[in-house]
């Protein structure tokens, strides 16, 4: 028995008895392995007595679950209306230059800091009132 199946078994056991346990399980698996790959989908399906297609359907629906782990640091940049109104599009070129191939820039729609944009998030740390150089610095430190 691989360590992966053991770990996933533990996660499933932890959520046993909860109503609608699939999303909490997927969050934990994504957190643990950085992705929910096909092998994990199969194990989760077996554990919950669902079909693999059911689980895959859920995994592929949500932006938070990925099929492969992201090796690079990820910087989320909000590009929704309020941040557009505050000029995020004008600094994206600088952001891309700062990121290069080293950092993955991920567009999100709204971090909830809509009066002090442009905003970015790295892990659970939020950054607000960014201009071009400040955003570039966030990306360089990611």
């Amino acid at each position: 028995m691989s360590s992966k199946s053991e770990k996933i078994g533990e996660i499933i056991a932890e959520h046993h008895g909860r109503e609608g346990p699939l999303l909490p399980i997927l969050h934990d698996v994504q957190e643990e392995f950085g992705c929910v790959d096909a092998e994990s989908e199969g194990l989760i399906a077996k554990g919950l007595n669902l079909s693999r297609a059911d689980v895959h359907g859920v995994v592929s629906f949500y932006h938070d679950f990925t099929a492969e782990p992201e090796q690079r640091p990820v910087v989320q940049i909000c590009r929704a209306e309020a941040c557009k109104a505050r000029g995020v599009e004008a600094i994206m070129e600088q952001a891309r230059a700062a990121a290069g191939d080293r950092v993955k820039l991920h567009t999100v729609y709204c971090l909830g800091l809509c009066s002090v944009g442009p905003n970015a998030r790295v892990g659970d740390t939020l950054h607000a009132r960014l201009d071009g150089p400040a955003l570039a610095k966030v990306i360089e430190n990611a």
Partner: peptide, 21 residues
Amino acid sequence: RVGAGAYVCGEETSLLNSLEG
């Protein structure tokens, strides 16, 4: 319960489906 990045889950029936897994 924590969502998973889907904007549409703010719609109540979609939210319920998501809650149910």
